[in-house]
Design a protein around this nucleic acid. Structure first.
Length: 827
RNA sequence: GCGGAGAUGCCGGAGUGGUCAAACGGGGCGCGCUCAAGACGCGUUAGCUUAGUGCUUACCUAGGUUCGAAUCCUAGUCUCCGCACCA
């Protein structure tokens, strides 16, 4: 056997490559289902395969996960820690349009790049299980599940509006719309267009999705966001009559019904045309044409605009005739897409009424203050509670009470129904794009909408396509033209592809079986590994991905594919790492940090350690190169120490410190307080430097290992170990050896040194020697530490007990002695 | 607009009723090592005061609860984040 050469210099490049290779060759991170060990599934949200490569946010995310995975593995769990790529999506398509590169090529290049980068960080993945969602072996199962959902009545088609660029002749994502203009054609206003699109009935599970939130061990802010997203509210549907037809309108404030002075129907409402009168058609069309994209983000600063439809409605409570407007601030998908507007008591309605000179009628007045200005005008809507006025028989009622009474009134007259409304909308999965999983549907003139039979899956994306004129699938004859599975006649394929959130809603199940071409996954394996024991990712997924995935699992459960309710019972959110200037890192600001650069310069271990040292992993922080320099210096110091390591016998303080650290580090890691764990490990090291046994030194390395896996493997081997430190047992604290007395002594010593330094400074002359007078039972401790005292004060020291007869004490300072606080005399 | 999070010393950040002038890291300053610099080691880093003491002012602002508040409550200011076709 060849003896290993150990470089006295910390040559991290060599070390890191060496261990990455050894881990790979020994397959130590590959796991399978087995009975002996308890399983533990650590999962980080998989990356979107962008051409930009791994950024620092990914690095942070995956480092947090890897530390946890390594920690759990050392605790004796069978840890599944997989990685894959979310590889369908818009950016690949943009690249195709901008630089003419095929999305597949672009994506696969990106994946190769990611893989190299991930490996250079030393993550302990089971690489055999990797997956990419753009592979047909993967998206075949997307199509399969889509069909299953269709069978279960969880899929339907409906008209919905999209952003349309008349120059591109294509649908634009919200992101591609800038100030209402197309990102490719600056002078072109984006229009709204109604298209028939595929929806998934996520609302069928609204209640369950909401109820289960409480049981999840998730950050409370994410739970709050989910609850708000689902947005259950109690209210009433009130029937308003327009053109002889009943229009139910949802409101949570029936108490303001007498204050309704107009109605607003969403400009995107599919039945808007039915309301518009001949006289107003031109006006309405003009308005619709200039309507901009309506993402809810912009809804806030959107100028509220509308146009009279020509129709009137009747207020069912008092028979008043009220005008109906079409407006840009009403959501078509929420409630019935129409609102009763009460300008006196809703700010949006108020702004609209002021702008279009619609009357404002106050029907709620608070008891203890005046809502009007001196001139009798209402400065803004009053949205609080109060007492009803101008409300007929309900006058004087308190608003809460009035809600009850008026609801009852309508129910009795059969003009209204108590309802529960969710903000959660059904999931629009249609995308008019190429780079996604084709929706497995065929349109036949005779048979109508026909699902593709399972045996014909996957419907593969054609590779030979042209970009530039709308969705390339729609212009690709080979793809488009097909036979009807039923009548075998001519038919056309659906050209919409699936939202990439469909891909990411079940990828965590595919890892168990990523090569299985008979099934999406093996039910037994799912049963073994699921649920994910620890999910880790950014808060940007608080709602969408995490709602869709939760929905997906519930739907799969009811289809009999899985047997659990929630995929991610435990979730951790990492914070955002901002650039040094405190702003978000972005290419356009030029403040992006490339992790590879720092791996090159300071090592992957230093980068990992520094990322965890900035702050608690869940808080937002700013990047600063100084931190990684500090981490690097620490590792250098550790490396040097172990290169010259000699085993020595440790004392009680070391035992105490070691066991206390073991105990606290475990707790800190479990709570993801990695920053605190690192502080304690670093502190422990300063004790080790004074000499410890080999075993204690090894324990230190084991605790440092999850953070800095490469250098700890190297030093572990240097100490003469043949096995991997990656597979060592996590130490267990011996609580009996933890003795807080040592901690107190430590503090007292520090205080003494501080005092000596303080006095020495006050003396304003060079001190020659100091004399320390202690209680008799403390003398030994201070005597033992006299070397330390000298080192840290720079002055020779002599320790006496107060009762020593021959002590030198010219100023009688020994009378100042207190327990834990010796007297001091300096000359 | 709706919803969420946060504000701590020169900086980054721990701390969430007393043990707090507040961990740890960075920076500054001083000292040691050295021919010298870097590296390294040690000390120090709110103010006044004092041979190691005592006092004052301090954890966004203003009130409040309490014997006691960085920590709990109320109001306000500011910052950041999410909002459904980016993923």
């Amino acid at each position: 056997m060849k003896k290993e050469d150990f470089d006295p210099k910390y040559d991290f490049k060599k070390i890191e490559k060496k261990w990455q290779k050894k881990w790979e060759n020994a397959k130590i991170f590959e796991v399978k289902e087995e009975g002996k060990k308890k399983k533990f599934y650590v999962l980080e949200m998989f990356p979107y395969a962008s051409g930009e490569g791994l950024h620092i946010g990914h690095t942070l995310n995956y480092t947090i996960g890897d530390i946890y995975a390594r920690f759990k593995r050392m605790q004796g769990f069978s840890v599944l820690h997989p990685i894959g790529y979310d590889s369908f999506g818009l950016p690949a398509e943009n690249a195709a349009i901008k630089i003419g590169e095929h999305p597949k090529k672009y994506t696969e290049k990106a994946i190769l790049n990611y893989e190299k980068q991930l490996k250079s960080l030393g993550f302990s993945y089971d690489w055999r299980r990797k997956l990419s969602t753009h592979n047909k072996e993967y998206y075949k199962w997307n199509q399969f599940f889509f069909l299953k959902f269709l069978e279960k009545d969880l899929v339907y088609k409906k008209h919905s509006s999209v952003n349309w660029c008349p120059k591109c002749k294509t649908v634009l994502a919200n992101e591609q719309v800038h100030n209402g203009k197309c990102e490719y054609h600056e002078g072109t206003e984006v229009e709204m267009k109604l298209l028939e699109q595929w929806f998934i009935k996520t609302t069928a599970y609204a209640d369950e999705l909401l109820d289960f939130v409480d049981d999840l061990n998730w950050p409370s802010k994410i739970k709050a966001m989910q609850k708000n997203w689902i947005g259950k509210s109690h209210g009433i549907d009130i029937d308003f009559e327009i053109k002889g037809e009943k229009w139910p309108v949802f409101t949570t404030r029936p108490d303001t019904i007498y204050g309704v002075t107009f109605m607003v129907i969403s400009a995107q409402h599919s039945k808007l045309k039915e309301i518009v009168t001949k006289e107003q058609k031109k006006e309405v069309d003009k308005f619709l044409k200039k309507l901009k994209s309506v993402s809810e983000k912009e809804l806030g600063d959107l100028e509220k605009e509308g146009v009279f439809t020509g129709s009137y409605s009747v207020n069912p409570i008092n028979g008043e005739k009220i005008p109906v407007y079409a407006g840009n601030f009403v959501l078509a998908d929420y409630g019935s897409g129409m609102v009763m507007a009460v300008p006196a008591h809703d700010q949006r309605d108020f702004e609209f009424a002021e702008k279009y000179n619609v009357p404002i009628k106050v029907v709620i007045e608070p008891k203890d203050f005046e809502i009007y200005e001196r001139n009798g005008k209402l400065p803004r809507a009053y949205t609080g509670e109060g007492f009803l006025v101008n409300s007929g028989e309900f006058d004087g009622l308190e608003s809460k009470k009035a809600i009850e009474k008026i609801t009852k009134y309508f129910e009795k007259k059969k003009q209204g129904r108590k309802t529960i409304q969710y903000k959660l909308r059904d999931w629009l999965v249609s995308r008019q794009r190429y780079w996604g999983a084709p929706i497995p549907i065929v349109y036949c003139d005779k048979c109508g909408i026909v699902p593709v039979p399972e045996k014909d899956l996957p419907i593969t994306l054609p590779m030979n396509i042209k970009f530039g004129k709308g969705n390339p699938l729609a212009t690709n004859k080979k793809f488009l033209e097909t036979k009807c599975p039923i009548c075998k006649g001519k038919a056309k394929r659906e050209t919409d592809t699936m939202d990439t959130f469909f891909d990411s809603s079940w990828y965590f199940l595919r890892y168990f079986d990523s090569k299985n071409n008979k099934k999406a996954f093996d039910k037994k394996k799912v049963k073994y590994w699921m649920p994910v024991d620890q999910y880790i990712g950014g808060a940007e997924h608080a709602t969408m991905h995490l709602i869709y995935a939760r929905f997906f699992i519930k739907a799969l459960r009811d289809l009999g594919y899985v047997e659990f309710d929630e995929p991610f019972p435990n979730l951790f959110n990492q914070g955002m790492l901002h650039a040094k200037d405190g702003r978000k890192m972005s290419k356009s600001l030029g403040n992006v940090i490339n992790p590879l650069e720092f791996i090159e310069k300071y090592s992957a271990d230093s980068l990992r350690l520094s990322l965890m040292s900035f702050a608690s992993p869940d808080s937002d922080t700013c990047w600063d190169e100084k931190v990684i320099v500090g981490s690097f210096k620490f590792l250098e110091k550790v490396y040097r120490h172990f290169m010259n390591f000699k085993s020595e016998k440790g004392d009680g303080i070391i035992e105490h410190k070691l066991n206390k650290t073991i105990k606290e580090v475990k707790e800190d890691i479990e709570k993801f307080k990695y920053n605190l764990a690192i502080i304690k490990i670093r502190e422990l090291f300063s004790y080790l430097e004074e000499g410890v046994s080999k075993k204690d030194a090894e324990t230190f390395l084991i605790m440092l290992h999850p953070f800095c896996p490469h250098v700890t493997e190297e030093l572990w081997q240097k100490l003469g170990n043949k096995s991997f430190i990656s597979l060592q047992k996590w130490p267990i604290a011996d609580e009996k050896k933890i003795n807080e007395r040592f901690e107190k002594q430590e503090q007292e010593l520090r205080k003494l040194i501080e005092d000596i330094n303080k006095i020495a400074k006050l003396l304003k002359k060079k001190s020659k020697k100091d004399f320390v007078y202690t209680l008799p039972n403390e003398k030994q401790i201070y005597q033992k530490n006299s070397g330390e005292i000298k080192k840290r004060t720079g002055i020779d020291v002599e320790v006496y007990a107060v009762n020593d007869k021959d002590k030198y004490d010219p100023e009688n300072k020994s009378k100042k002695v207190k327990p834990g606080r010796p007297g001091i005399y300096i000359e």
